[in-house]
Design a protein around this nucleic acid. Sequence first.
DNA 1: ACAGTGCATTAGCCTAGACTAAATTTCAAC
DNA 2: GTTGAAATTTAGTCTAGGCTAATGCACTGT
Lengths: 232, 232
Amino acid sequence: MNTIRSPQPPPSLTRSVEDYLKSVFHLTSQGGFATTSDIAEMLDVAPPSVSGMMKRLSETGLIEHVPYRGVQLTPQGRRAALQMIRRHRILESYLTSKLGYDWGDVHVEAERLEHAVSEKLIERMADALGEPRYDPHGAPIPTAAGEIEEAELVPLAESEVGSSLVLQEVGDEHPARLHYLAEQGLTPGVRLTVIDRQPFNGPTIVRLGDGTTRVVGQELALLLFCRSSDGE
Amino acid sequence: MNTIRSPQPPPSLTRSVEDYLKSVFHLTSQGGFATTSDIAEMLDVAPPSVSGMMKRLSETGLIEHVPYRGVQLTPQGRRAALQMIRRHRILESYLTSKLGYDWGDVHVEAERLEHAVSEKLIERMADALGEPRYDPHGAPIPTAAGEIEEAELVPLAESEVGSSLVLQEVGDEHPARLHYLAEQGLTPGVRLTVIDRQPFNGPTIVRLGDGTTRVVGQELALLLFCRSSDGE
DNA sequence: ACAGTGCATTAGCCTAGACTAAATTTCAAC
DNA sequence: GTTGAAATTTAGTCTAGGCTAATGCACTGT
Ligand SMILES: [Mn+2]
Ligand SMILES: [Mn+2]
Ligand SMILES: [Mn+2]
Ligand SMILES: [Mn+2]
């Protein structure tokens, strides 16, 4: 018979699949492959679970798997990943702006909600917020069409002593660290000058826009992604 | 060793379990048992799936199962069910009030979100709304402590001809019906007088507060839950 | 060239939660 | 009381997505 199929109703991805796709996206954002063990660590599952999932995902055409090398997203997988990232970041923005959430608490909430919200709800939230371009941690929000801004950012921990920077984006997964950073005034948009750095993975010392200084240990300085502001 | 266990971290119910508990709650709200086939129909699963789940739920102490008779919620199951119903109804209220959702569309959205939101998010939404007591369909919202208002309502289809009623609550699961009812001005709070009813499951004729009349077919009249307003 | 090591994969098992088909129980009707 | 229909449960199967233990591959160093 070989009946012509009507345009398949989108099979709706599971929560697990959606989180795997996001992980692959993040791990390949600098190009290259995402490895089994990196994905396993990011999602806190055992490596064989990843192998199993990668097999299923490549059968459904969401990723390309090169055995023993790693995986990359197909265009279809990338679209799905960017959609999830848009959901996540719009949710974080909405919770922060409209429901008084602390920026340290939104990530964990968004991590669950992103799998349950409809496209329609996300667009209503985006609309209520005025189509925000960045989430509360400074990460760019993909458009509904699946475009995302790519910036070259350097972690403060790896910045050049003497450079003038703008803090652009902060790693969003650690509530306690975020809480502390906010107290220190280290939030996206702040200007800073790198005064010094201690050796042996020591702290970075910065001067803020208001003239005060901060001593930032390496662990935190690795979470602070900056762009150069020399030309400004 | 027999170590003393600290107060078990709540095992966090699955989406399925949460929906089964809600079904049992609704089916037993008039007392008695929820039957396997009623639950199966309400959740659109096969009866053996229900039997299987009922077994698991009675093992975890959420329901009491009398074989071949049906099930009832334990106090623990009832608490969990009421918590889900609170979440569902707060979500419906929030989507309607704050994000411009049509009252016909909120149910399906809430049906998914109720399993993903945290207690904290629900309470923030409730707070933003001013602790609403009824959802957009007129259903009472349980308190955070697990209290729910119980009213004796009669479906318009079974009301007495000649009586004066207030439309209190409308079945919330059918977007198209809800859309139509809103057009007809048949929304919670409206006063109506039952003028007549045609025989053989025919329509009920009502006069609204503004003097206009409506002819309501039985299928819809079964969704309109009213309380008497004779004394007012 | 080859041994060793570390990562990746396979093999095999488990649970939740669906399903269908078969067996069992209940209950109403005779 | 027996019988038959309807509801319920059991038996057996399936998929998704985890896990551990065992095996296989690839690169590094000699
Ligand atoms: Mn986040
Ligand atoms: Mn997630
Ligand atoms: Mn509802
Ligand atoms: Mn639900």
